[in-house]
Write a protein that binds this DNA or RNA. Structure first.
Lengths: 199, 199, 199, 199
DNA sequence: AATGAATGAGGCTTCATTCAT
DNA sequence: CATGAATGAAGCCTCATTCAT
C-alpha cells in the first residue's frame, strides 16, 4: 500500500526472524507470549521488535497476513479444479496444516487487526464460498451447508486436536475427516438451525 | 463434600453472583479476564472474590466443577437409555447447551485445577466412553470412532459458533448436527489417522 | 482514666485471651502479625478484636502498657533496696525476662502509642534513673554512665540473643551479664562520646 | 564474579542510587519498606527496581552483600595486626560505622538470602572468631567470651543508639565502648549461661 | 456482644512500549 | 539501526477495618 522502499538486507532478515520466532512463541505460549521472549527467540533486542512492528498487535497482524495470503494462494489455484469436492477438502487440509491452533485468531478478532488483514480475509472468505458452491453443485457437499458454515468449521480440527496434551502433529487430519464426512450428502439429517450470514 | 457449615445467606448469594459473573467474564474475555472486572460485574469488592476463592485458579476450578458435575448428572441418567444413539446426541446437546464458548478450557489444562475437578472430569470421560460404546454397538455411531474422539469434539460446536460476531444463541445446534452426522456410519470414509489414547 | 464500667465476665476473659494471643503472635511473627491470626489464636472472631481494641496499634499499646506497668511494679519495690547495685541488676533482669524481643518497641515508637503508654513509660524512665543514680553512688556502676544509657541498653540482651536461630530461652542472661560488666567501674575506659539527654 | 559485561554508565549509576535509597529506606522503615518508596527515593520508576533486582529480597541481598564484603575487607587487613585487642576494637568500630541500624538483619535470616551472602557471611564469622581468639590469647578479652558472642554483640551499639530520636551520628561509639569494656578481663564476673554454638 | 463477610487501599511483580546510548 | 534501560499501567493478592447478621 505505502510505497515503502525495500528494506536493507539485514533488516529484511531480522523481519523474517521475528515473524518466525513470534509464530512459534504464540503457538507455544498462546496469545500472551511476551515480546521479550519473542525478541530473545529471534536473537535480537527488544527494541528491534518495535522498530519492525509498532505494536505487538501489528506483529500478530503481520503473521496472520502471511498465513492468510499463503492460504489464498492455495485457494486460487483450486478454484477451477476438476474435482470440486476434492478441491474443497484439499483447501481445508492446507488450512489446517498451518496448525497454529489457538493463536489462529484470524477469524475471530476481525477488524481489530490491520485493514490489510481484513482485505485478505475477505478474499479468503470469497474463495471458500466459491469452493463450497462448486462442491455443492457437484454433489460433493450436502445441500443445506453454506460457505459460511465451512469457514467457521475450518479451524475446528486444530482446535479439537489442541486439547490432546502431546498430540501427534497430524491428529487434526482425523477430525477434519470426521467433520468433512459430516458435510457430505450421504446420511445427512436435516439441520436444526439456519445458517449464519456470510461474514 | 467437605463438611463446611452452610454459608450465610448473603455469602451464598455472593458466591453464586461471583460464579456467574466469572463465567460470563471468562467467556467474553478469555482466561485472563481480570479479577477486578469479575468483581465489578458481580457487584462486589475485589476482596470478596478472594474470600470465596483463594485464588483466581480456584475460581476457575469452581466454575469448571459446577459445569462438569451438572453435565455428569445428565450423563448418568442417559447411561441406560433405550436408544443409545439418541442418548449420546442428547448428552452432547446438553454439554453444548452450557454454552461455554471457546474459553471453557475444562478439558485442557487438565490436572492444573483442583483434584476434585480431575475426579469429576474422569467421571465425565468415563460416561462419554460408555455412551459412545453403546451407540456404536447399536449402529448409531461409526465403527472407527472412539470415546476419546467424541470427548474432543464435544466443545467444537460452541467454539465454532463463537466466531460469529452476534451469533443467535442456538447456532451451535447447527454445528453439533453437522459434526454428529460426521460420526454416523452412513457415508463414512476411512479415517486417515489413528485415534488418540483415552484421556 | 475513663470511668469504664467493669466488663462483663466473658468480655473480660476475651480481653485477656486476646492480649495473650497477640503477645505470642507478635513475638513469633514480628510486628506485622496479622489480626486474623491473632483472633484465630485467641479463638475468637476477627470482629471481636476490634470490639476490644479499636485499632491494631491500640492492641499493641495495651500489651506494652501491661508490660511496662508490670515492670514498674518491680522497679518501685527495688527503689529502696539495701544493695543498689544488685537492685539495678535485678531490675534489668526482670526487664529482659519479659523477653518479647523485637516487638518490644516500647522505647522506640514513643508517642505513636497511647498517652497512657507515654505516662507509664516516663514513670519507668524515672525509676531507672533513680536506680542508676543510687547504684552509682554506691560504686556499683561507673561514674560516667547515666540513667539514659541504661535505659537504652536495657533491651540489648534480648535483641542480641534474638539473632540465634533456636536460642535457649535464657541466653539473654549471658549478654546481660557481659553488658552489666561493662557498666561496672572496674576496668572502665573513658567513653568516647557524651551521653544522650534523658528521654 | 559472574561474567556479566559491565553495566552501561547510566544503569550503573541507577544501580548505586537504588542500593543507597534502599539502604536508607530499610533503615528508616524497617524491612517492609515498600519498593515504591525505594524507587521514589532513588528517583527512578518502580519498574527499574525490578530490572536491577529481580525481587525485593534480591535487593536486600545485594545491600547485605555489599556491606559484608566491605567489612570483610577491613577484617582481613586486621587479621595479623600487632595489637590484637586494638584490632578487634577497630573491626567492631568499622562494623558499627556502617550504621545500618536495627533493620540490617544481615546476621539474622541467614540462608534466606542468596548463596553469595551466605558465603561472605561465613567468611565474616570466621574473621571475627579469629580476631577474638587472638585478642583472648593476648589477654585483651576475657577468657569466657567466644567469637559467637562477639558476632552477636556486634550490632548492639547501633541498635541501642537507634532508640534515641535525633541521635548524634556517633552515639553508637559510646555503647560500643561500654560493651567492649564488658568484654575485657578486668572486673569480669562469671557468666550465668553457656555460649551459643558458632553460627 | 460476637461473628465473619465485605471492602478497598496498598504491596509485589510483569510487560508493552518509549527513549537514551 | 540496534540495543537494552526505564517507565508506569495493570494484575494478583493481603490485610486492617467496617458492618450486616
Amino acid at each position: 500500500m505505502t510505497p515503502t522502499r525495500p528494506l536493507r538486507a539485514d533488516a529484511a532478515r531480522n523481519r523474517e526472524l521475528l515473524l518466525a520466532a513470534a509464530a512459534d512463541e504464540f503457538a507455544e505460549r498462546g496469545l500472551d507470549a511476551s515480546v521479550a521472549d519473542i525478541a530473545r527467540r529471534a536473537g535480537v533486542g527488544k527494541g528491534t521488535v518495535f522498530r519492525h512492528f509498532a505494536t505487538k498487535d501489528d506483529l500478530l497482524a503481520a503473521i496472520v497476513l502471511d498465513r492468510v495470503e499463503a492460504l489464498n494462494a492455495v485457494g486460487e489455484r483450486l478454484l477451477d479444479a476438476a474435482d470440486p469436492g476434492a478441491a474443497l477438502l484439499e483447501f481445508l487440509t492446507a488450512a489446517a496444516h498451518q496448525r497454529q491452533q489457538r493463536d489462529l485468531s484470524f477469524l475471530q478478532e476481525a477488524g481489530e487487526l490491520s485493514p490489510e488483514v481484513t482485505r485478505v480475509r475477505s478474499r479468503m472468505f470469497h474463495i471458500v464460498r466459491t469452493l463450497v458452491d462448486r462442491a455443492r453443485e457437484h454433489g460433493a457437499v450436502r445441500a443445506d451447508v453454506t460457505g459460511a458454515d465451512v469457514i467457521l468449521l475450518m479451524c475446528a480440527p486444530n482446535y479439537v486436536a489442541g486439547y490432546v496434551p502431546d498430540a501427534p502433529p497430524d491428529l487434526w487430519r482425523r477430525y477434519l475427516a470426521i467433520i468433512f464426512d459430516g458435510l457430505r450428502p450421504e446420511g445427512a439429517h436435516a439441520l436444526p438451525h439456519p445458517p449464519p450470514p456470510a461474514p
